[in-house]
Write a protein that binds this DNA or RNA. Sequence first.
DNA 1: TAAAAATACTCCATAGGTATTTTAT
DNA 2: ATAAAATACCTATGGAGTATTTTTA
Lengths: 300, 300
Amino acid sequence: MAGFSIKQLRYFEALALHGHFGHAAEASAISQPALSVQIKDLEQSMGMQLFERSARQVRLTPFGEAFATRVREILHRVDALDDFARAAQGRLTGRFRLGVIPTIAPYLLPRLIGNLGKSHPRLDLHVRETLTPRLVQELLQGRIDTAIVALPVSEPSLFEMPLFKENFVLVRPEKDAGKPAPRASELREMRLLLLEEGHCFRDQALNFCNAPSAVPRDGLDGSSLSTLVQMVGAGIGVTMIPEMAMGVETRSAQVNCVAFDDPQPGRTIGLVWRASNPLAEAFEEIGEVVRQSESAATTG
Amino acid sequence: MAGFSIKQLRYFEALALHGHFGHAAEASAISQPALSVQIKDLEQSMGMQLFERSARQVRLTPFGEAFATRVREILHRVDALDDFARAAQGRLTGRFRLGVIPTIAPYLLPRLIGNLGKSHPRLDLHVRETLTPRLVQELLQGRIDTAIVALPVSEPSLFEMPLFKENFVLVRPEKDAGKPAPRASELREMRLLLLEEGHCFRDQALNFCNAPSAVPRDGLDGSSLSTLVQMVGAGIGVTMIPEMAMGVETRSAQVNCVAFDDPQPGRTIGLVWRASNPLAEAFEEIGEVVRQSESAATTG
DNA sequence: TAAAAATACTCCATAGGTATTTTAT
DNA sequence: ATAAAATACCTATGGAGTATTTTTA
């Protein structure tokens, strides 16, 4: 195993440059004997003489010259590594793997990606869209860095940063426009179309109706909010969607949206990451960007 | 200035590989706390966290991953440097600059170059042909590594390795063939053609005639042995050349060569180098090759 | 509770300083 | 005689060990 140190290589480089122990030592901010010893040790660990000493001259041996070019190459990379670390200081760098649940992704990501590109131009963003349980699992395995999900996830090793609260709105056939918003109890009597099993949004909606354990009913479950809205437009029933989805999903369908009376149903969306992840500060910045992207998406 | 050590980089690499302080420490042949401390120090000197620690997992941070690829690159080069030194062990490597005096060069070099190519295939041989004083000067300045000259050079900082003794022979017009070899005193009476001022061979020849201070005589000095021999062939006078030059120089001229009676005139040829040069051993090997090249040249 | 990393401390190797000697010009 | 490198010796920093505590799953 190589027994020399970076320090020794630096001293070597200085001596090769100055050709004089005294001057090289001064340039290296150590004493001349210290330099002598280090050079001698380096030569010993190499098993080769690097310098030819005479009373007035210190010269590289031919081997020393070949050695010097390699040493310079190494020191150059060492310095570059140092610079690299200094440049990355505190900033989020390299690959950033973000998970997002399906009932958020299509409405938030377009703006979020744009905003992240501006705020963190060096970021290599990877997006994973899947259901909360899988996101949590991938977080714990270190396969993604953070995830945007509905809080709480209540996983002890995950840290949760609340971002915003989003309300749910009722989506009903266009002919119902003008009618008052139904209350939870009334909603239970209507044909409520829901996302299929597994989506947290399904549970959140059912929860509002005080029917948390509703079983799947054939033909009344959709695999996306988009599908549900289309079904409502076709007169099959009513559904609930997050505010954020309104703009995109109800534009092309013959449906009417109405907010519920207080207390409005809704959920808290947040950013989660492993509590052990040292990049908390950077993630909070990311969370801030997500928050801005949401408010723009809802307002606009 | 980069404050980390090669050791720390090795520990880092081990931990990145094993993802476990205990195992990485074992692989690095140090204790777990020692590894912990070194990694912590490395992170501190980088100002960035390299690993994310949780109770069951040690993972590289995104920055740590980018760091790792650079570290591996550096360690690879460090190992290569070590291998390079180990491979060069004792051997002469790289550029080898050899000076040769003009009265030796043309006769010795053809064989010497061939032989050196066989015995030291990695050698990058540079040959400098010039007069002794300049060779000595260039040796002292470190512009050449060794020189083949007539001994002694009597320069205190130069080491002299005697290689072989070469005798001088008389070159006279072909019509003189059969006559006995002249003695030194007789030679002084003949028109002796010599090399121009500066060649050591001129002084060595004059020395034999006991006329060390002979002044230049217009038209009787030549700039090369070849010229002198041609002049002899033209009947202008006689000259002396080293044995080794006989084969080449007298082949095409109408001249006769004869050895002198004992004590024969001659000179000792040797290899010289700076006494401070640590490659003495290697140079003695080179000298041995020169010696072999000479005997082959004289015999053949 | 168990496994793993961090901390506390102690020790020793060694890098580096000062004073001096050796060497070569 | 002088300039420069090597050596001797001492000190102090810090790398590494053992024992222990803290943390988290």
